[in-house]
């Protein structure tokens, strides 16, 4: 059974001449159109995720990973032109074409996103608890006591000190802010969570604890996830299957251990050999 089914995801920045997708990509060696200069952040990206499965997306900076993550999380481009087809089990039609209300409801329910940049995901002037409560309120929770209890449970689950829940989020450490983001993403028991660079900017020891925490919750709740990272170690630890992206295209896909130990594409071989 397929939970999340995405096909032909594409995002282009700039005024496209119409031939940009043909003129860019892995074979062309660039994601910028030589004719018109538009940037094809991603194109021809198709993937699917089953319930409880973790899909990894790896690639260097600018390979299009975050663009794919945003489309999967139904965050339509505020700039650039996005297209594609994203379907979620139990919901009708192409959700990228759905009206704002529907996408808003899904983003506050069935789909959770952990942004690469904390500021995109959290209001740092709000309290940590408030950031998580906001998601619950948007999803229709109304009882103050229930919201409070749920936030407290999520803080415990994601190992954020509960006694800090009424402090402004900007007073939290980087690791705590990341945990609050994960708590927020998980608040409404989503079917799938999209994590964009979940450990970037954290100390190695803090990275490890955040990954441990997420791996534990993912298994316990059996929630599906898409983990985007330039760090092969993160994907190796979390993902069942892995996509490798370059110049806005998927160049290789397979079981994570197969991709890591028997990389086929020239770029994947370089990537694996570059690990320090």
């Amino acid at each position: 059974m397929t939970l999340l089914d995405a096909s032909d995801l594409r995002r282009v920045y700039g005024d496209s001449c119409g031939d940009c997708v043909e003129l860019t990509g892995d074979a062309a060696g660039t994601n910028q159109c030589p004719e018109c200069g538009a940037v094809v952040a991603c194109a021809d990206v198709s993937l699917d995720v089953e319930p409880g499965e973790v899909l990894g997306i790896v690639g260097e900076s600018g390979s299009g990973k975050s663009s794919v993550a945003e489309l999967l999380a139904l965050e339509r481009a505020t700039d650039g032109q996005a297209s594609g087809d994203v379907r979620l089990d139990g919901h009708d039609g192409n959700l990228l074409d759905a009206d704002y209300e529907t996408r808003h409801r899904l983003r506050n329910g069935a789909v959770g996103l952990v942004h690469q940049h904390v500021r995109d995901g959290l209001n740092l002037e709000f309290t940590g608890g408030g950031n998580v409560a906001e998601k619950l309120l948007a999803a229709g929770w109304r009882n103050f006591g229930d919201v409070r209890d749920r936030v407290r449970d999520l803080f415990e689950e994601t190992e954020v000190p509960v006694e800090r829940m009424d402090d402004p989020t900007e007073t939290y450490s980087g690791g705590m802010q990341r945990r609050v983001q994960i708590a927020r993403a998980l608040a409404t028991d989503p079917d799938v969570v999209i994590l964009d660079e979940p450990t970037t900017g954290l100390d190695v020891s803090v990275q490890a604890r955040v990954l441990d925490m997420f791996r534990r919750i993912q298994r316990e709740e059996d929630v599906a996830a898409v983990v985007v990272s330039h760090d092969l170690g993160v994907v190796r630890l979390l993902a069942d299957r892995t996509l490798v992206m370059r110049h806005g295209r998927v160049v290789e896909t397979g079981l994570t251990d197969r991709v890591m130990e028997d990389p086929h594409h020239e770029y994947t071989q370089t990537l694996i050999n570059s690990v320090i």
Binding site: G254, L255, D257, R258, E261, D262, H264
Partner: peptide, 9 residues
């Protein structure tokens, strides 16, 4: 062994 387990394709 890795081929049998499909770590190698």
């Amino acid at each position: 062994l890795k081929c049998l387990y499909r770590t190698y394709e």
